[in-house]
Structures are given as structure tokens and as C-alpha cells.
């Protein structure tokens, strides 16, 4: 509608189309920031006006609220992320929003390539973990705007990042049954028949599937402690073979 009404707004905006605001993923937001985009605006339909029964706009709202807290945590100004709800007739609102947002982001300046970039990459790696940990809250329909601010708290996000687990296979317990190896969604587990399985920590997305499927309790969830190094390549033969 801004277009049809010839309303003007700054040229700094690039629009990426999705079919529903609910499609906007945590991943998209942080990917954009990590690539050096200075501000992200999510636009969804007006709340309670979903023409379908999806109500993806409420999901987008939660994603935005969560993202803002994470941004705060990693030292990225949350004012770089905006969410606004409008209908296709709200040209004025759209143009005004873009103007205000561009002004704010300009004041904040370029995002830079410093420490924040590193932290953003870390967040990108942790997204699967974050999604699992905040799943219930991401689904809440926050009809009361007064509850938005505290839906995700600062402390909560600190805890979230403090308690990032690592999964580690205890070489003593592993019986090389291949269950975790086959089920790892990202293929981050090395091993083979009669070879102790090892999780490649840098690729692990911390979903915990391995721990869930291990019948021998060999996969340990470690929180707040270093992950022991894997046994050297030549010492990986299992002591206890898996029972048939």
C-alpha cells in the first residue's frame, strides 16, 4: 500500500518475501546480522487477523521477543530488530515504521566485524538448542501486550547460555552399536563397527537425540564442565561389544 499511495521511505530497506510471518526463523534473523545486515524488520499481519488459522504472527512475535533478549545478551543492541503488525492497507504505518527504524539503526551505526560477529556465529550454532529449550514459550499466544516485555527475561537467557550442554560419549560405556551414529540429524558422530563412537563437538547441534537413543547410557550430557578429549584414533576399539 505504501507503493500504491506513493508514500516515501528511505532506500535502505530490502524486502524478502515469506508466505507467513510464522516462517521467519530465529536462524534468518541471526544469519542476517552475522552477514553484516544492520537492522532487521519483521512484518506480519495484524494480531488476531490471521486469514487462516495459523496465527503465525504470534509465533513471529515470540521469535522477535526471544531474539531481542539474545541480542541483549551478546551485546548487540536489540533496537536493531523491529517487529510490526499491519494489514495490506496500512501503507502509512509501513512507511512510518521504516522511517523510524532506519533513523534508529543509523544512529546505532554499522554492526561491525568485531566481537559481536563471533558471538553471532556462536548463536547461529546454538539455534537448534535454543529452539528446543524455548519451544513451549515460542508457542504461547501473547494477546496481552503488557506481558510481552517479560515473556523472556534477561536471567532466563543468561541461564540458557550458561547451561549449554555438551554431549559426550563415554568410551568406557560405548558398545559401538551405531544407534546414535545413524540417528544423529547432522551426522556429527564418528565411529564404526567395534569402534568407539565420538561426537565431533564443533558440528554437534546439541539436540540430544544421541543421548535419547543410546540403550547403554553411554552418552552423557555435560553442563558447565569441559568435554574430555576423545580417545586417540588408534585406541578406539570397543572393550564391550554390543549384544546382538
Amino acid at each position: 500500500m505504501s507503493g500504491v499511495s506513493r508514500l516515501q521511505y528511505p532506500t535502505d530497506l530490502r524486502i524478502i518475501r515469506v508466505m507467513c510471518a510464522g516462517r521467519v526463523d530465529l536462524k534468518h534473523i541471526f544469519y542476517a546480522f552475522s552477514k553484516g545486515v544492520d537492522g532487521v524488520l519483521i512484518v506480519g499481519c495484524r494480531l488476531n487477523e490471521c486469514k487462516f488459522i495459523t496465527e503465525g504472527n504470534y509465533h513471529a512475535l515470540n521469535v522477535a521477543l526471544l531474539s531481542k533478549r539474545i541480542m541483549e545478551h551478546i551485546g548487540l543492541d536489540p533496537r536493531r530488530l523491529w517487529i510490526e503488525f499491519m494489514s495490506s492497507a496500512d501503507g502509512v504505518l509501513f512507511a512510518e515504521t521504516v522511517k523510524k527504524m532506519v533513523k534508529t539503526v543509523r544512529e546505532l551505526g554499522p554492526i561491525g566485524n568485531g566481537k559481536v560477529k563471533e558471538r553471532l556465529d556462536e548463536v547461529m550454532r546454538l539455534i537448534p538448542y535454543i529452539k528446543i529449550a524455548t519451544r513451549e514459550k515460542l508457542r504461547v499466544k501473547l494477546t496481552d501486550p503488557s506481558k510481552w516485555e517479560e515473556h523472556f527475561t534477561k536471567e532466563e537467557i543468561e541461564d540458557l547460555f550458561k547451561n549449554v550442554p555438551s554431549y559426550w560419549i563415554d568410551p568406557e560405556e560405548c558398545r559401538a552399536c551405531m544407534a546414535c551414529l545413524r540417528r544423529c540429524p547432522v551426522g556429527a558422530i564418528d565411529g564404526g563397527k567395534k569402534l568407539i563412537h565420538v561426537i565431533r563437538q564443533e558440528e554437534c547441534i546439541k539436540c540430544g537425540t544421541c543421548a535419547e537413543v543410546c540403550r547403554f547410557g553411554a552418552v552423557k550430557k555435560l553442563v558447565g564442565q569441559p568435554v574430555p578429549p576423545p580417545p586417540p584414533e588408534d585406541m578406539r576399539t570397543v572393550k564391550k561389544a554390543a549384544e546382538a
Binding site: M19, R23, D25, K27, T54, I127, P128, K131, V186, C207
Partner: peptide, 17 residues
């Protein structure tokens, strides 16, 4: 309906629109 809500919820990106 291709809304992609599942895609945003999926931790590993296994389901995509």
C-alpha cells in the same frame, strides 16, 4: 498451506517449506 510454521519450529531444519 505452506505457512512454514513447522519450518521455524524445527530445531534441525529437517522439515522445510
Amino acid at each position: 498451506k505452506g505457512c512454514g510454521l513447522c519450518n521455524s519450529e524445527c530445531p534441525t531444519g529437517a522439515i522445510q517449506v
